[in-house]
Simulated assay, not measured.
Amino acid sequence: MGRAQSAAREVNENPVVQIAGRVGMVFYGILYVLLAFITAQVVMGDSGEQADQKGALGQIAETSYGPFLLWVTAIGLFAFALWQLLEAAIGYTWIGKERKRLGKRVGAASRAVTGVLLALAAIKYAAGSGGGDSGAQQKELTAVVLGWPGGQFLVGAVALGVLVIAFVVIRKGVKKSFEEDLNMGELPNGTRKFVERTGRIGWIGKGLAYAIIGLLVGIAAVNADPEKSGGLDKALHTLAAEPYGVFLLAVIALGFFGFGIYCFAAARSHK
Rank of each mutant, 00 (worst) to 15 (best):
Y32C: 11
L34G: 01
V23I: 14
Y28M: 14
F27W: 13
I30D: 07
S47D: 15
E62P: 09
V16I: 11
G29E: 01
G48R: 10
I60T: 01
D46T: 14
K54W: 12
V33T: 12
I19P: 07
M25T: 08
S64P: 08
I60E: 01
I30M: 14
A56P: 05
Q53V: 12
R22Y: 11
G55P: 05
G29F: 03
M44E: 10
G55L: 01
Q59G: 13
A20C: 15
L31R: 05
Q50L: 07
Y28N: 11
R22Q: 12
Y28P: 03
A40H: 13
A20K: 13
Y28A: 12
F27N: 04
E49H: 09
K54Q: 13
E49F: 11
P67M: 06
L35R: 01
N14T: 00
G29H: 06
I38Q: 01
V26H: 03
G45Q: 01
F37T: 04
I19E: 14
G45V: 00
M44S: 10
S47Y: 14
V23R: 10
A36G: 12
I30S: 10
A51G: 03
G24F: 03
F37R: 13
P15D: 00
G55D: 01
A36K: 02
A51Q: 03
Q53E: 08
G66M: 08
E13M: 03
E49N: 07
M25S: 11
T39W: 00
T39H: 02
A56S: 14
A61S: 15
E49G: 06
E13S: 08
V43R: 04
F37P: 00
T63P: 02
L35N: 02
G66H: 10
R22H: 09
G66V: 07
A20T: 14
G24S: 07
L35V: 02
D46Y: 12
P67E: 05
L34N: 00
K54S: 12
L57F: 06
D52P: 03
G29T: 04
K54E: 10
A56L: 04
V26G: 06
P15L: 00
V43P: 07
Y32S: 14
F68H: 10
A36C: 05
F37W: 15
A51M: 06
V42S: 04
A61N: 09
Q18F: 04
Q50Y: 06
Y28L: 11
A61I: 09
Q18P: 02
L57Q: 06
G66C: 11
Y32T: 10
V26Y: 07
V33K: 06
F27D: 02
Y32D: 13
Y65M: 14
G58C: 05
L35E: 01
V17N: 06
I19C: 12
T63C: 03
Q59H: 11
E49Y: 11
Q41C: 12
V23C: 09
F27K: 05
E13K: 03
L57Y: 08
A20H: 13
A61Y: 11
L35G: 03
M25E: 07
Q50T: 09
G55E: 01
G58N: 05
V17K: 05
Y28I: 04
A40Q: 13
A51F: 06
V23Q: 08
